[in-house]
Design a protein around this nucleic acid. Sequence first.
DNA 1: CGGGAGGTTGAGCATGTTCAAAGGATGTGG
DNA 2: CCACATCCTTTGAACATGCTCAACCTCCCG
Lengths: 264, 264
Amino acid sequence: MPRPAMGRDRRFVDLLPATNPLIRKLSHCAPLSKLDKNVLHELATGDERFRADVDIPFEATPLRRAFLIKEGLAIRYRNMPSGSRQIMTFLIPGDLCDENVFLNPMDHSIATITPVCLSWIPRERMMNLFLHHPRISAALWWSALQEQAMLRERIVSLGRRDARGRVAYLLCELYWRYLSVGLAIDESFRLPLTQMELGDALGLSPVHVNRVLIDFRRESLISMGNGKVILLLICELQNIAGLGKGYLQLRDHEDYPKSKSAGR
Amino acid sequence: MPRPAMGRDRRFVDLLPATNPLIRKLSHCAPLSKLDKNVLHELATGDERFRADVDIPFEATPLRRAFLIKEGLAIRYRNMPSGSRQIMTFLIPGDLCDENVFLNPMDHSIATITPVCLSWIPRERMMNLFLHHPRISAALWWSALQEQAMLRERIVSLGRRDARGRVAYLLCELYWRYLSVGLAIDESFRLPLTQMELGDALGLSPVHVNRVLIDFRRESLISMGNGKVILLLICELQNIAGLGKGYLQLRDHEDYPKSKSAGR
DNA sequence: CGGGAGGTTGAGCATGTTCAAAGGATGTGG
DNA sequence: CCACATCCTTTGAACATGCTCAACCTCCCG
């Protein structure tokens, strides 16, 4: 039986997003005007590229700023004194990361998994958003709340799901997130993670991740290969994760602000 | 040896906060003008009181709104199909909870632990904040990011800390949070949780929580009784949790917006 | 062809779980 | 004021899920 070899095949960049993933994501959060979208489009300035498997440096730059992932996959992680590592979050295109988030300098680190293209957002430009673009402000807040919900869901995973449930949930979460920025096709998406990285995200040992994945494949729940995953039976995966039917789909705004425009 | 009886002594309400905890919390996030503070003060309208150990109902009200905890302790939790429960978050005075956060209707529930006093914030008033009070907007965003950091820290707990580390961290987190809204005196604060509830928050069984707590007391790290905890050796607790010295203290804004006032 | 990274497999082990029972504290009704 | 009921804590012992360690395998790439 040929090995699926899911892991490091990191030469590819993401499937091309038709539209700016940040705009796409925030559009789910609040209705944005043309102007808002333009502002967002010009928010993130010069691109900077990073190789795979490197830390994104911070201390180098004294001034704090945010950045936006444009392409690639990164992680927010923390090394424990014991030598183990916990991956807190995967950062995918469209994700915004404010360094101010660091409660303490180097509370954690951010590293690339694949090659990453990101662009920096100076502090004052971020502030201008709040001063002059209330709908974007609302969208940012709302988006932060959605991310909170995702983090809470991961807390549930680590707290109360067994290994199978955790793996199943992670696959679903990543699928939904990629879907919401237009980077999943059908039930498949790129997942260039080693089993060790998966373990570090799931609070499991790599070998146990391995066993679960093998089971899932044997049960025809998923199929992997070439750094891509296909979720063959999403419903069943949700079941294993203990989620109701459409559990974590990102819900769009409903009654969100029909505010008067607030141009710069 | 007399039992410390930490658990249910829920008759007391919180120590009286000298000032509005929300304002107190957001002041850490961005410099607020007098006006901002007034707005915040009048943000949350009619008080509503709940008994201990009841769910806060939502479906009853079709219109979505947020609420603010004014007094008491509540939890955000989820019941798993298996019958177990995961507590995602403790809600303490000053915490804002937007029902929109629910990614899906009843994605999870909110229940009181002690008697709780909260007040509702209508949707449109929330929106006005973003339209007319940019510094508050920024503070809200920033506060949401801080909460994210807290959630990530809990992910680390559940993913990579052993039982002792989890308990130690939780105690520190609650202590810091109470401190930031002025509800901790010295190293002690009210903790009206049963060991079962602690277990549900920590992803541990109640009996194991028990054993850890007993150890901690034997080691004179903490002291409990009457629904109060005293952290006798915070440094050592942080060590056990694998945190550096001042790890999770809430850091204040530094270079945050010195924006022009933006009165209504 | 050789080396390295990652995947697979097995066996013993450990942390934390489950189940069960008993002990204190508190509140209620007789 | 006592008896009882309830809720929480404490303790012990068997058990289980997932971990560690170690080996081997496979693929890819230089």
